[in-house]
Amino acid sequence: MTALEASGTGKGPVADAKASAAGSTPVTPAQHNARKDNRRKWIEIAIFVGPALLMFLAFVVFPMVMAARYSLYKWDSRQPFELAEFIGLDNYTRALFGGTDPETQEIFWKAYAEPFWNAVGNNAQIIALSMLVQLPIAMLIALVLNRKFPGRSSVRLIIFAPYVLAEVTAGLMWLMLLDPRGPVTQMVQGLGLPTPPQGWLEDPTWGFWTFFFIVSWKYIGLAIILFLAGLAGVPEELQEAASIDGASWWQVQWRINIPLIGPTVRVWAFLSIIGSIQLFDMAWVLNKGGSTNQYATIATLMVDTGTQRNDGGYASALAIIMFIFSMAAALLYLTLVMRRDNAARARKGA
């Protein structure tokens, strides 16, 4: 909130000047008008908050509640919902372990649970790889770039650019570049290295890694920029002091810079985890999660189920499961990891 607070307090002197010019005697509301004032206050509150609250309830909360309801039905979404049949938690049990009926369990395991766990696995791998691969790379780049050098601001600008591009355009760009007969293939072959025979994205083993590379290309800029913003707040005296004491560059980074931007890193990790759980656009643009679902996510499976297979009930169950995952991740993370940061911030009174 630093930036906002800064711009907020920047207005301070101006506002104070205006206030004192107008005479800053405290207002005492007339006693006999208290009830009228009170009604007036509530009308004002309704005018201000009303539109936003109504829109929010109608277009965010209501659809969420309906999704929970639909998830309890067997429903062909081409038919009106009145024709749907209530089946309790069957959609959920099918996703998790192929349903409770032993006769159909094997078929349903193949049809529902297998794609579901495949997608969950992909989401989980993307989360893990973000922490194990994106985080160290972004941190290293941020630490190295955290100094004055010619063209610094342009470099920062460029590194961040992919983040603002639509996933659709970025995805199509990589689809072109990674075409089996495209430039990446030619360059790799030019180096005398083997290339995946079925193409970068379609190969059973390479497909997922290629997808992760594309996602990283798109999002690592956010991590670098946030880390750099955090590093800008580390007092130079600390680094200088350590340096005088004979600490090497690595020791300065490891003992001072990285611990001090811990809160920024933890917030980035939080955003990254939630974003990874809900990942959709990029996977969908790149051949709808891949022809063998090699990088399908819960969200692409859900949209595929709802639009291509018209299974409204099962798609809604997947949506609710995704929501539960995000909620659980958020709550766990907030209580386990970020509680310390929030407590520290509260102590500072910021």
Partner: peptide
């Protein structure tokens, strides 16, 4: 509302 992504609510 931060926890309710559009993706989850898309069909309803």
């Amino acid at each position: 509302g931060l926890m309710f992504p559009l993706t989850v609510a898309i069909f309803p």
